[in-house]
Amino acid sequence: MSGSPQDYWKANIRLVSILLVIWFVVSYLFGIILVDLLNEIRIAGVGLGFWFAQQGSIFTFLILIFVYAKKMNDLDRKFNVHED
């Protein structure tokens, strides 16, 4: 199926907005603003807030980019704007 370029762009913005909210939550919220609160929860020898700040946020960033790449490729096909 295909839709208008405007719909494609809206779907794109929606996807990116959701992913950037997660990006903000894991780094700024979990890693910095709520760090003390989350450090109350300990997984093995690491407070959860500290873990998000030094490891967890980076792993989440990775997942976000690959999810973005996959979903955008799907959108490209759905709206028939893909390459080739």
Binding site: L20, A53, Q54
Partner: peptide, 17 residues
């Protein structure tokens, strides 16, 4: 941690924006 997050989180912006 600011360096760890700052120097990796930029790639999310780069990839999506």
């Amino acid at each position: 941690s600011v360096y760890l997050m700052g120097w990796t989180g930029g790639y999310v912006l780069l990839a999506m924006l």
